[in-house]
């Protein structure tokens, strides 16, 4: 086991690194100021939360001085719902630098509390937003222009398998052949195997010289992205990878309230069948979609990872003043 320093009072990043981090964050603000994208602040605590099956949320009890009953509030995992409500209220292009919180996530690329940059562009589709993120990466991190590859092409190129048409049996066989028989032999969920193969076998090949966008994820992994009109097997969702880091996740945003409600209910159904507690559906968010979300694309970027890349650090704690172990 690698030696890990014992937590102590001192910062996990050195002061010089923290100053460089501050400069990067100032550059991000400058980048958006030049493009007339204004900065917003939305709550960290909210009444409803994300339904994503794989997301574990922190919650806390609010003792309301005006009510005998305690109320559960959730720490946000991303400011997505609140920012979309602002878009529905006519905000126009907005960005936010916010703390996001995810339970059960810690490692050299994860801290349970982290900084997220999220922005929305009315009138942009996901391709235009990839262009803008590419510009941000070049100007803030100093990267070369990014490559682009569809999810399907990446699987075909590196694993010789079509993720959109392959059956569960074919995916299981591929997983077993690559040494993951322990997970794959009994797995009934195609997406779990796809996520395993993608993160362990495709991703390490991507983006070692310049960043790489992967786009058109399977519709079953759409999250809050629209399904493509050209190919209903895929969603208009993209991710950005560079040097082994997953940096960003973006969508051409789903604006259809009934479809969004269906996805929430499907998530809760999946939670129920796995023995997890269901989550309250965010009715304010659905009401806002009902009132009308402008056609837009949005993306969330892990700022700590961006700083890791820009400064050549391999562990997230080396870009945080205090990581969760000595926070």
């Amino acid at each position: 086991m690698k030696h890990e320093p014992r937590p102590c009072w001192q910062p996990t990043a050195d002061v010089a690194t923290l100053k460089q981090r501050a400069a990067i964050i100032a550059n991000i603000r400058q980048f958006f100021a030049e493009r007339d994208v204004w900065e917003v602040e939305t709550p960290s605590l909210s009444n409803a939360t994300v339904s994503d099956f794989h997301m574990r949320v922190f919650d806390t009890q609010f003792a309301d001085p005006m009510s005998p009953q305690q109320r559960t509030l959730y720490l946000q995992t991303s400011p997505e719902y609140a920012m979309k409500r602002l878009l529905c209220a006519g905000s126009g292009a907005i960005f936010q630098l916010a703390k996001a919180f995810r339970n059960e996530e810690a490692g050299k690329h994860h801290n349970p509390e982290f900084t997220m940059l999220e922005w929305y562009r009315p009138g942009f589709d996901h391709n235009q937003l990839m262009d803008e993120l590419d510009e941000l990466m070049q100007s803030v991190v100093g990267c070369l222009p990014a490559q682009r590859m569809s999810y399907q092409d990446a699987f075909i190129k590196y694993l010789d398998i079509d993720p959109l048409s392959a059956s569960l049996a074919v995916l299981k066989a591929k997983g077993c052949e690559l040494g993951y028989e322990h997970i794959c032999r009994d797995e009934q969920d195609k997406d779990t195997i796809l996520q395993l193969l993608f993160s362990h076998e495709v991703e390490p090949n991507l983006a070692n010289r310049c960043p790489c966008f992967i786009f058109d994820f399977p519709a079953s992994q759409a999250a809050l992205a629209r399904i493509s009109l050209q190919d209903e097997r895929v969603a208009e969702r993209f991710e950005l990878y560079y040097e082994g880091l997953e940096l960003a996740n973006g969508f051409h945003e789903l604006a259809n309230a009934p479809e969004q409600r269906q996805r929430f209910e499907r998530d809760n159904q999946q939670r129920k069948s796995a023995g997890l507690s269901t989550v309250p559906i965010d009715e304010f968010f659905l009401d806002a979609l009902d009132a009308g979300l402008p056609d837009c694309s949005g993306v969330a970027v892990g700022v700590d990872r961006l700083v890791m890349l820009a400064l050549g650090k391999s562990d997230i704690r080396h870009v945080l003043a205090f990581n969760y172990q000595n926070a």
Binding site: M1, D52, E105, G107, H110, D191, F198, S199, Q221, N249
Partner: peptide, 17 residues
């Protein structure tokens, strides 16, 4: 056990390598 690394896509299943 010698080493344990946490691997989690932003969207999707978490793994331990």
């Amino acid at each position: 056990i010698l080493e344990n690394e946490y691997v989690k896509p932003g969207k999707g299943q978490a793994f331990n390598r």
